[in-house]
Design a protein around this nucleic acid. Structure first.
Length: 289
DNA sequence: AGGCAGGTGGCCA
DNA sequence: TGGCCACCTGCC
């Protein structure tokens, strides 16, 4: 792969840890770290590399995609928000653990990923670890997605494309029982033109209810799709990690997911999704201690 | 080597 | 509403 020259990306100076947590901490399954510490990632028809260089962030793309990536990267990285101000609006003043998370992972962001791709990624996620989800998504792209650059770089299949793939071929991409969810969701969407776009545009509660009509989408997946793929910062996905994190750090032992979700929304407020990401980052790095 | 894993849906009381 | 279990199968 040939790349254009490194370009500065003003407005965000994440530490190496924070860059890694943002890109490769479970929000997206299409970023990977190269040996030299450079991150390579794909979304929609874009490919980019990112690196921290002398505390500044730099990006580059294949020459043919340079102009397009220059247009779309800022939105993808959430440049429309002032993340320092958002973090400051979290209730860290009355929450020592959150204060510690915000201090250690200062600059952490939520990505603004393509809505349909986010749905696909999290439909793959049930009871799988990130490494395995990345494999599934890579196989889906390699076998069923359009080529966007040479050599061998493919976007994810779109939902209309997925609707034309037999479930057996989806299973061959290591999806297991998730293949049926993806197949049936693709049929659902194929029968309802504009449904996905209307869902992305709807307010949080309505969008979540709509997503949960899809086979394979429950509370957790719906919240992930809305938080990482629709900018709904009030979404508070409760997975096994958050369950463990809140049990340990907030004394919520034995609480059920619905109770923890209610705690999250009331304790962390309208930006609960950002708090969730800080807690998640902390638990990934300090898990067990 | 075998249990487990970023959940969901269906069934039972 | 709430608990239990099947669902696939590649990793650690």
């Amino acid at each position: 792969m040939t790349w254009s020259a490194w370009q500065p990306l003003p407005g965000w100076s994440p530490s190496a840890t924070v860059l890694a947590e943002t890109l490769d901490g479970g929000q997206s399954f299409r970023w990977s770290k190269e040996d030299d510490g450079v991150f390579t990632g794909l979304w929609a028809d874009n490919i980019a590399q990112l690196r921290s260089h002398d505390t500044a962030l730099q990006w580059r793309a294949p020459p043919a995609l340079h102009a397009q990536v220059a247009r779309e990267l800022p939105r993808y990285l959430g440049h429309e928000h002032d993340w320092t101000a958002l973090a400051d609006a979290l209730p860290w003043r009355s929450d020592a653990h959150l204060a510690q998370c915000v201090r250690v992972f200062r600059g952490l962001r939520l990505l603004r990923q393509p809505f349909g791709e986010t749905l696909l990624g999290f439909l793959c996620s049930a009871t799988k670890q990130i490494v395995q989800i990345k494999q599934m998504v890579a196989l889906l792209a390699e076998r069923h997605g359009a080529s966007i650059a040479r050599p061998a770089c493919h976007r994810l299949p779109t939902w209309p494309e997925l609707a034309a793939i037999p479930e057996s071929e989806l299973r061959a991409c290591l999806l297991g029982f998730r293949a049926r969810y993806i197949h049936e969701t693709a049929q659902f969407l194929a029968a309802r033109p504009g449904w996905l776009e209307a869902t992305e545009a709807a307010p949080y509660a309505a969008a979540k209810a709509r997503l949960m009509d899809l086979p394979g989408v429950g509370e957790k997946v719906a919240d992930c799709v809305l938080l990482f793929g629709a900018g709904k910062l009030e979404a508070f996905p409760v997975d096994t990690w958050i369950l463990k994190a809140l049990a340990r750090r907030y004394g919520l032992d034995g609480w059920k997911p619905a109770q923890v979700a209610h705690f999250g929304r009331t304790h962390f407020g309208p930006l609960a999704g950002i708090a969730q990401q800080y807690l998640f980052a902390w638990e990934r790095r300090h898990g067990g201690r």
